[in-house]
């Protein structure tokens, strides 16, 4: 029974990791660099929701639009001030710049909100019991919300004109340009979607555990591992990768110290890099 309980936790963690990994994957496929500030964009989202929760007094789920607003602003500031001016440089300069921006976001949050951990809502939730499995109401919200978002993303990518254009750019940037797809507008759309997903992931992470300034940075490794596992540039792969990473991380606590959860994500990443660097779903060849 313990296994099933851990699988439940794994699905919750996996939902959060997947939402982050989709964004990393999309950004990589359109902008061609690993966005190291993505974890901290999640943190911005979580604290954005906290603003909504404390100021307006709504639940974190209702405060998600506020979270998205914060995260989108954070990302667009970086796009206009850093990433766009640096775009003609080598892509690794963008990576380093995003690493610097990660630090900027994190210290800004610490400056405003303080370094102490916070929670959206104190008090104990009454969990649901299914046999021996215990599920908190928050976990339903997290998994349900993630499923909803994945469906919406799927419809966007497979049905809408701009979603298809995004896939086209990821497939073949030059041909997309030649076909008249407006590259810059697509870049902005990519940022907004990636930031929105990161914001939701951050809110979910805050609901699952608690908020602190390094919460997103700590999750960056599993998020990248999921994106690589799924094949970078493949949003559907990132979803699968997220759940694989999340479930493996939680199941590993049966045999090893929970402190090493991240080592499990890392081990999976390393394993993938050795046997199949393009990921399970054959991502962008590097």
């Amino acid at each position: 029974m313990e296994v099933l309980q851990l699988v439940v936790y794994g699905i919750v963690t996996g939902s959060i990791v997947a939402l982050g990994a989709i964004g990393v994957s999309l950004v990589f496929s359109i902008l061609r660099f690993a966005h190291f500030a993505h974890g901290d964009v999640m943190t911005v989202g979580a604290y954005g929701a906290l603003v909504g929760v404390t100021l307006i007094g709504v639940t974190p789920m209702v405060a998600i639009p506020v979270a998205i607003l914060f995260a989108v602003v954070a990302v667009l500031v970086a796009e206009f001030c850093l990433y766009r001016p640096l775009r003609s440089s080598h892509p690794v300069i963008l990576l380093i710049s995003s690493f610097g921006y990660a630090l900027i976001l994190r210290s800004a949050i610490q400056l405003v909100a303080g370094p102490a951990p916070q929670v959206f809502k104190s008090g104990i939730q009454i969990p649901y019991r299914f046999g021996e499995i215990v599920i908190r109401p928050d976990h339903f919200w997290i998994v349900g919300g993630t499923i909803l978002i994945i469906v919406a993303l799927h419809l966007f990518l497979s049905r809408s004109k701009f979603g298809k254009a995004m896939r086209a750019m990821s497939d073949n940037m030059d041909l997309a340009r030649i076909s008249g797809i407006p590259a810059y507008r697509m870049i902005l759309i990519t940022w907004v979607i990636a930031a929105a997903l990161a914001a939701v992931a951050g809110v979910f992470l805050g609901m699952d555990t608690r908020l602190h300034p390094v919460m997103g940075w700590r999750l960056l490794l599993p998020v990248f591992a999921a994106a690589i596992l799924g094949g970078i540039g493949r949003p559907y792969g990132a979803i699968a990768g997220g759940f694989i990473i999340g479930i493996s991380m939680e199941l590993s606590t049966m045999v090893i110290d929970p402190g090493y959860k991240h080592a499990v994500a890392f081990a999976l990443l390393v394993l993938m890099l050795i046997i199949r660097p393009t990921g399970l779903f054959r991502g962008t060849s590097l």
């Binding site: 700590r218 990248f224 591992a225 991240h262 080592a263 890392f266 390393v270 890099l273």
Partner: peptide, 24 residues
């Protein structure tokens, strides 16, 4: 040995991982 054939992005990610694990 793991990352030497891959783009430098992978090395960056792998080094983050190893540093976090060493700290743990």
């Amino acid at each position: 040995m793991i990352t030497v054939n891959l783009r430098s992005d992978y090395l960056a990610i792998a080094t983050i991982g190893i540093a976090e694990i060493i700290r743990f």
